[in-house]
Amino acid sequence: MASQEIENLASALARLPGLGPRSARRAVLWLVKRRETALEQLLAAMAEVKDKLVECPVCGNIDTRAPCGICADHRRDARSICVVEDVSDLWALDRAKLFTGKYHVLGGRLSALDGVRPEDLTIGALLERVREGGVDEIVLAMNATLEGQTTAHYIAERLEDLPVRVTQLAHGLPVGGELDYLDEGTLAQALRARRPVG
């Protein structure tokens, strides 16, 4: 039986996504054995993040600077903005280093049942960014869920009167996917979104 302090640490770690009590105890044991090295580093890193953490006032990304590294990067194309539901989506897209423009994080998706309304999302701020000018294209990168697609439609409608091109991520055949193994819904989407070759 560990002391109350160690138990407190374990129960705090257990709440981390994907961890749970058993893994948390293992992590705690690993850390206490490396009190001077790994534990010290972890403490310092966490303290630093805690002190400097800010939400980017422009795009909603989480970073230690404001505006965030992406918004401040002049090599990125400011004429193109990719709209995502959450910061995790932004990070997923940016890990791939494929999108060279900037981002806009909505902070969720429209859901009447969960009580998430348009004013709870940063849609107003997005419209403001477009109205300020200098933006040619809005890429809607919502999840292919019911709420995600409703949100995408909502934003597209709100952007309708503004001089900006609105595009949406394609849905369909995954890369490396075999037709034989796809569900019919995905196949139907892919068929609908077919395009000329060459």
Binding site: A112, L113, P118, T150, H153
Partner: peptide, 24 residues
């Protein structure tokens, strides 16, 4: 369920939001 929830609200529902839900 989303549409019924939107319609049940005290305030008149946002027509653009309803458009999005009705499209689905």
């Amino acid at each position: 369920r989303e549409r019924n929830r939107l319609l049940a609200d005290d305030a008149p529902p946002d027509p653009v939001w309803l458009d999005g839900v009705e499209r689905q």
